[in-house]
Design a protein around this nucleic acid. Sequence first.
DNA 1: CTGTCTGCAAAACGTTTGCATGGCG
DNA 2: CGCCATGCAAACGTTTTGCAGACAG
Lengths: 152, 152
Amino acid sequence: MIIYLKDELIMEKSPSYETILLQMGCKSTKSRKAIIQLLINAEIPLSAKEIFYFIKESGVSINLSTVYRTLEIMESNGLLDKCMSDDRVRYQLILEGSKHHITCTSCHKSIPLSICPLKTIEKDLVNKTHFDIKGHKLEVYGLCPKCRKKEY
Amino acid sequence: MIIYLKDELIMEKSPSYETILLQMGCKSTKSRKAIIQLLINAEIPLSAKEIFYFIKESGVSINLSTVYRTLEIMESNGLLDKCMSDDRVRYQLILEGSKHHITCTSCHKSIPLSICPLKTIEKDLVNKTHFDIKGHKLEVYGLCPKCRKKEY
DNA sequence: CTGTCTGCAAAACGTTTGCATGGCG
DNA sequence: CGCCATGCAAACGTTTTGCAGACAG
């Protein structure tokens, strides 16, 4: 868990299980708790299968269908980002106030960023494209300090 | 086809089939030509199945396996971006010098952008995260002028 | 107690693969 | 002509679905 206080660039902000469940508007069950908790703690985007196995190996019995169904609810509530990562479909919690990440292409660790470079160009973009801009997504890729060392 | 000359923000740059084939380092066939040409002309990210049907309906006989195999080659050569778009896996040509797009969430039309807002913050990012930044991806979402009107 | 959620098994779907044939260079 | 690419069909992995029983509120 990385926390840089007074740093405007890097940020780690963990929502609570309760908050997320509330936003999902559904009942609290042990499966959902395990899935949400895992996504909160995960530093890398996870596939449905990975989520399933992680939880199973932690001793909580769970079914793959339940994982898919829970992810579906979270996604439709705008809480989860479904993306292609490492050539697989993976899911990552959308942290409030932090839509952007810097991700390691080697270990897939993902650190949320608090900056948003789009703010500077958004108005200009609207003027040129006449789009009604609803949102955006920024992903930065590279090697984290640890993996950098491994590659000498 | 949108072209704004002398505009630093929006850009449309079409590579040729020959250039792409050369970068792929493989034989020229009618299937590959059809796939690459379609991706060059497409204004929206396409799924494998869509590519397959578009080409078939244009009168060129083609097989789904061939589509997948060609997309695989293009992707591994860094010519194609495989992403989740409209909740499906879709492919989009990576235009040289233009890695970013503004995409309509309604009709999925995608316009390449020539600006790169990351340049301004990249150095700062390196200092803070100590990542060896290899690349990045920016996607802007919204409603294009046409779809804006449809929604009154 | 009621409606929602889960587990299970089967189905549906998307993607990959092996092999024989076809076609580019 | 030799090798690479294609078509086909089957295999494979992922995701979805229907249903009966379990459980939260």
